[in-house]
Design a protein around this nucleic acid. Sequence first.
DNA 1: TCGACTTTGTGCGTGCGTTCACAAGCGGTA
DNA 2: TACCGCTTGTGAACGCACGCACAAAGTCGA
Lengths: 250, 250
Amino acid sequence: MASQRGEGETTATPLEPADRERARAIPEAAVARLAVYLRVLSGMADQGVTAVSSEELSQAAGVNAAKLRKDLSYIGSYGTRGVGYDVEVLVSHIERILGLTRNHSVAVVGIGNLGHALANYGGFPGRGFPVTALFDVDPDLIGIPVGGIPVNHIDEITAVCLEREVSIGVIATPPPAAQSVCDRLVSAGVQCILNFAPVVLQVPDNVEVRKVDLAVEMQILSFHVARRADEAASVSDGNGLGVDGMVIRP
Amino acid sequence: MASQRGEGETTATPLEPADRERARAIPEAAVARLAVYLRVLSGMADQGVTAVSSEELSQAAGVNAAKLRKDLSYIGSYGTRGVGYDVEVLVSHIERILGLTRNHSVAVVGIGNLGHALANYGGFPGRGFPVTALFDVDPDLIGIPVGGIPVNHIDEITAVCLEREVSIGVIATPPPAAQSVCDRLVSAGVQCILNFAPVVLQVPDNVEVRKVDLAVEMQILSFHVARRADEAASVSDGNGLGVDGMVIRP
DNA sequence: TCGACTTTGTGCGTGCGTTCACAAGCGGTA
DNA sequence: TACCGCTTGTGAACGCACGCACAAAGTCGA
C-alpha cells in the first residue's frame, strides 16, 4: 500500500480539484448507478453507437430519466442540450470518477468453490481489476495455479499484498475465518474489502467494506414470495377479519 | 421432490392478518437487516445464549441500536422492557416474517464456474433453500449431476420448474443469455429471480429481481480507493502524511 | 439570421428512512 | 407493596434521495 501512487509519474489520472470536490458529494446510491450506466454505455460503444439521450440510456439502465440526468450532473455537465450525450465522452468521464483509469490489483482469499469461480473470472468483469494474488490455508492448494495465479499460504498475506500492491481484498472463506482474514488484510494495508462470507466484519473507519450476502438475498426474495402468497390468500379467503375480529380491510 | 408442499395441507405457516398488514409496511432496507439479525441470533442460539439486549444485538449486527429496535418493531413487540429479547422467540418471529417456515425450491441456470459454486452450496446458506433444478445449454453437461442434482437442458425449464415448484430462479449465465433465460423463468411462473449476470433485466411488475453484480461492487470500491487517494493527495501537498498519520510517501 | 423544436441541467416539493430522545413497562430489591 | 434502575417501543425531527417540471441552451431547417 505504501507506494500505490508512484512518485513523479503515476499511471492513474489524478482528478482535477473541481472533480475532487464533486466526487466527495456523490451519493453512494448514485455511484452504484454510475457503474451500471458505464456498462450500458460500453455496450453501446461496442455496437457503434456514438450519441445517446438521457431517455434512451435511462431505459436501458432501468432507471428514471430525471434521476439519470441528476446522477450525471454529479460528475459534471457533459451533455449537449437538444442532442444528448456523446457515448465516448461519458464513458471516459465515468471511468475517471470511478477511478477506473488506474488498475486495482485484487487478492482473493479462500479458494473453495466460490474462490475458484472468482479467480477464474481472471481480470474481473469490466477489466481493470486484475487478480494478482490468491490465498488459502489448505496445504494441498498452495502452489497450485488457479486462473494462472499460484495459490499462496495465508500467512504470506502481508508480504504478498504489499509486494503486489493489492488494493482490493476479496474474502471467500468459510464464515469462521472471515474476521481473522479481514484483520490480516487490513494490517497488510488493504483498505477495500469485498466480503462474500456471511459475517458482519468489524473494521477500522478507514476501511471500506462491501458485502455480497447470498443468504440475505435469498431471504429477501423469500420475504417477497411470502408477501405475495399472503396477499393472494387474503384476497381469496374473503372474510377480511383480523385476529380479534378487527376489520383489516374496511 | 414434486410434493414439497402437499396439496390441501400446506407446510407453510400462514401469517396472521395482523402480521400481513405489518409485512406490507416493512421497508425493503429493514428486511435486509432482519435477515442479518436472524443470522446473528442463530449464531447466538447455537452458543446457548437465550436472551439479548438491543444494544448487544445491534453491535453484533453492525447497526445503530435505535434502528435495530425500530426494525424489530416492524414485526411486532416481542421484547421485554428492562430485560431484552428472548433469542428463540425473536428467531422464530423473524423466520416467520421472512417466509422461512416454508421451503423455497431454487433453480440455478448456467452451470459455469459460478453455477457450479452455487449448486455445490447445496441447500443454500441458512437452509430452507434447496436447489432442486439445474439448467444449461452445453450438451456435455446435460445429465451430469452437480451437487447431487442432474443438469437439465434449458429447453426443459418450463416443465421442470412447474413440476418441482421452483419459486426462486438464479441466473448465472453469460450476459447475452440472461434476458432470454429470465423470460423463460418468468413464463414458467417463477416470480423471484436472483441475477448474477451483469445485465439489467426487464421483467413484468409482478416479478421481483435482486441482482448481485460483482463488477459494480468492484467499481464502487474503486471509487472509494480513488476518493481516498485524492483526499490523501490534497492533504499531503507538504507533509506527506495520510489520514491516521501513516506515511504515504516514504 | 431567426424561430421552432429538442434535450439537458437543476430548483423545489415530497416521501422515505434514519436518528434522537423520552415515556411506558418490567424485574429486582428492600 | 412500593421504589429504582434498566430496556424497550415509538413519536417526532431531521436529512437524504427521488421525481417533477421548467428554464436554459443548443441544433436544425427555412
